[in-house]
Design a protein around this nucleic acid. Structure first.
Length: 470
RNA sequence: GGCGCGUUCGUCUAGCGGUUAGGACACGGCCCUCUCAAGGCUGAAACACGGGUUCGAUUCCCGUACGCGCUACCA
C-alpha cells in the first residue's frame, strides 16, 4: 500500500493541504503502508524552491515524515512526454492545430448564450497530409486525448461508485504547444511510476478523476483506489482563504499553536474515531484512523475550537517539554531571564495558557514590578483599613520562610488573629504584588517571586496606592 | 448554463429503520475556590423542504431548495 501527498509549491502549506497530508499519512501509518511526497512544480512561473522548502518545513513541524526522497515532478517531463507520444502512436491522442485564441473566443460566445463549450474535435479527423501541411506552415499544435464514447465509472473510498458520462468531457490537452505535459498526464504517469495504490486528495479533484481514469485505461496502467476528501471551508462556508484569517500552517506555528494540537484538530475535520474521544495523541490517531470513516461533507474551520484543543495539548506536555516550546516564543526584552527561573513558572502557568506566548503575555508581573494597579480591582478590594493591615503584615513577611506552605499558614493565621476573612488580605496582596486581580495562587506566586521582590513591591504599593475614603 | 458532490445544534461531530437524537467547542447557570484558569455538574441549541417505500423514517428512494466543486495549453 502506497500513498502520496502532492502539493504544488505555488504557495505556503495551508490547512487544507495539511489535512490532506495528514489523512494520507495516517492511512499509511495505520496500515503499515508507505507515504511518499511529490512536488508538483510543473508550473514554473508560479513555483519556487522557497515554497517547496516552506511546505516541507510545515510537514516536518506537524510530525509528518515521508519514506523516500521527495520527487520533483519537473524532473520527469521527458517520461511524461514519452508516454504522451505512446498514446499518440496507439491512437489515444491526436495533434490539434486549433489556436487557443479561436477556442477562447468560441468558449466566451458559448458562455454568453448560457451554454457550455466543449472542444468539438475538429482536428480529430485530420489526414496525414493535412497535418504535414500544418507542420510545414509552422502552425502551433497541442496533443489532445481522444475521449472515447460511453461512461466512466470508478469507485471512490469516500463517495462510493461515481459515474460520469464521457459526453461531458472534451478532448483535453496532454501536451501544450510548447511541448510540456499538462497536470493531467503528469499525475497519472507519476502516480503509476511511484506505485501509488491509493490516491487520497481534495474533493476539488473529483471532476478530474474520470479524465485520469481514461488515461489509466489508455496507458494500460492499473487503476488505483481513489478517495476524495471533503474540503475545509471558512466561517461563511466558502472555501478557506486568506480573508478568513490565518490559513497557512506556518502562521499557526508562529501564533504559538502546538503541532500536536494542529494535527489532532485537522485529523478531526471530516473524520472521527467513532467514540467520544477528541483529544488524541498522534499515536492514538494512528491507532484509531480508519479511512472508511471519512465523511463526504465539507467542514468549517473553527479556530476557537483549535484554541481549546491547543490548551488541552499544552496540559498534556510535561513541564520540561512545555518550557522548551515556550522558550521559542520568549519576547526580546526577556532574553536575560534565566531559563531556570522560567522553569519555576511553568507549573503555575500551564493551566492558564491556550497559546504558547500566553505564558509571557499573561504573566508579565513575574518579570516586571507593577507600575499601576487595576482600578476596578482597587475599588473592589482595597478598603479603608487595607494600608494599615498590610503594613502590619510586612514585618512578619520579613521573618517568615518563603515557601508557599509557610506563607499560606502565616497569612491565613494573620487574618484569623485580626478576625478578618483571609480574602480581605489575599486580594489586596495580589493586587499590590501583581497590579492585577487575576493570577495563579497567591502563595505559590509569592514563593516564586521571592522575598525581596515581594517586599519591594508591597512597599511600593503601600507608598503609591492612595488611601481610599472611609 | 452543464456535470458532479454535499445537507444532524452557530461550529466540529455520533447515529448506520424503532434513541428522551449522544458528545465536544462557543454561550448561560451552579459547584469548587484566594482571583484567573483548570476541573465537575447543568441549561439553551439540530435531523433543509416535499413526496414516496415501510407497521415505523434522521436513517432507504425520488424530486425541490440551498451550498460547494469542476467546466484552461493552472495544479
Amino acid at each position: 500500500m502506497t500513498v502520496r501527498f502532492a502539493p504544488s509549491p505555488t504557495g505556503y502549506l495551508h490547512v487544507g493541504g495539511a489535512r490532506t497530508a495528514i489523512f494520507n499519512w495516517l492511512f499509511a501509518r495505520s496500515v503499515g503502508g508507505r507515504f511518499l511526497l511529490r512536488i508538483e512544480d510543473t508550473d514554473r512561473q508560479r513555483s519556487s524552491e522557497a515554497m517547496t522548502r516552506e511546505i516541507l518545513d510545515g510537514l516536518r513541524w506537524l510530525g509528518i515524515d515521508w519514506d523516500e526522497e521527495a520527487v520533483l515532478q519537473s524532473t520527469r517531463a521527458a517520461r511524461h512526454g514519452a508516454e504522451c507520444l505512446r498514446m499518440l502512436d496507439e491512437g489515444h491522442a491526436y495533434w490539434c492545430y486549433c489556436s487557443s485564441e479561436e477556442l477562447e473566443a468560441r468558449r466566451d460566445a458559448a458562455e454568453a448564450t448560457g451554454g457550455a463549450f466543449l472542444y468539438d474535435g475538429t482536428c480529430r479527423q485530420l489526414t496525414d497530409e493535412q497535418r504535414a501541411e500544418n507542420d510545414a506552415a509552422g502552425m502551433a499544435k497541442v496533443l489532445r486525448f481522444r475521449v472515447p464514447q460511453g461512461r466512466t465509472v470508478f469507485n471512490d473510498i469516500v463517495h462510493d461508485e461515481t459515474t460520469f458520462s464521457n459526453e461531458e468531457i472534451d478532448d483535453f490537452v496532454l501536451l501544450r504547444s510548447d511541448g510540456t505535459p499538462t497536470y493531467m498526464v503528469a499525475v497519472v504517469v507519476d502516480d503509476h511510476d511511484m506505485g501509488i495504490t491509493h490516491v487520497l486528495r481534495g474533493d476539488d479533484h473529483l471532476s478530474n478523476t474520470p479524465k485520469q481514469v481514461m488515461l489509466y485505461h489508455a496507458l494500460g496502467y492499473e487503476i488505483p483506489q481513489f478517495g476524495h476528501l471533503p474540503l475545509i471551508l471558512g466561517g461563511d462556508k466558502k472555501r478557506l482563504s486568506k480573508r478568513h484569517g490565518a490559513t497557512s500552517v506556518g502562521e499557526f506555528q508562529q501564533k504559538g499553536f502546538l503541532p500536536e494540537a494542529m494535527f489532532n484538530f485537522l485529523a478531526l475535520l471530516g473524520w472521527s474515531p467513532g467514540d467520544d474521544r477528541e483529544v488524541l495523541t498522534r499515536e492514538e490517531l494512528v491507532e484509531a484512523f480508519d479511512i472508511r470513516r471519512v465523511l463526504k461533507k465539507s467542514s468549517v474551520f473553527d479556530e476557537e475550537k483549535l484554541l481549546w484543543m491547543n490548551g488541552q495539548h499544552i496540559r498534556l506536555l510535561d513541564d520540561a517539554d512545555l518550557l522548551r516550546r515556550i522558550l521559542r516564543h520568549r519576547p526580546e526584552d526577556l532574553k536575560n531571564v534565566p531559563d531556570e527561573e522560567l522553569a519555576r513558572l511553568v507549573p503555575l502557568m500551564k493551566e492558564r495558557m491556550a497559546l504558547l506566548p500566553d505564558f509571557f503575555a499573561n504573566g508579565m508581573y513575574f518579570f516586571t514590578d507593577p507600575e499601576h494597579w487595576d482600578e476596578e480591582g482597587l475599588r473592589k478590594r482595597w478598603k479603608a483599613g487595607t494600608h494599615e493591615t498590610l503594613a502590619a503584615l510586612l514585618p512578619q513577611l520579613e521573618e517568615s520562610p518563603f515557601t508557599a506552605e509557610a506563607l499560606e499558614t502565616l497569612i491565613r493565621g494573620f487574618a484569623e488573629e485580626r478576625g478578618m476573612g483571609a480574602g480581605k488580605l489575599i486580594h489586596p496582596l495580589r493586587l499590590a504584588l501583581t497590579g492585577s486581580t487575576a493570577s495563579p495562587s497567591l502563595f505559590d506566586m509569592m514563593e516564586v517571586l521571592g522575598r525581596d521582590t515581594c517586599l519591594r513591591r508591597l512597599r511600593s504599593a503601600l507608598a503609591r496606592i492612595p488611601e481610599p475614603e472611609a
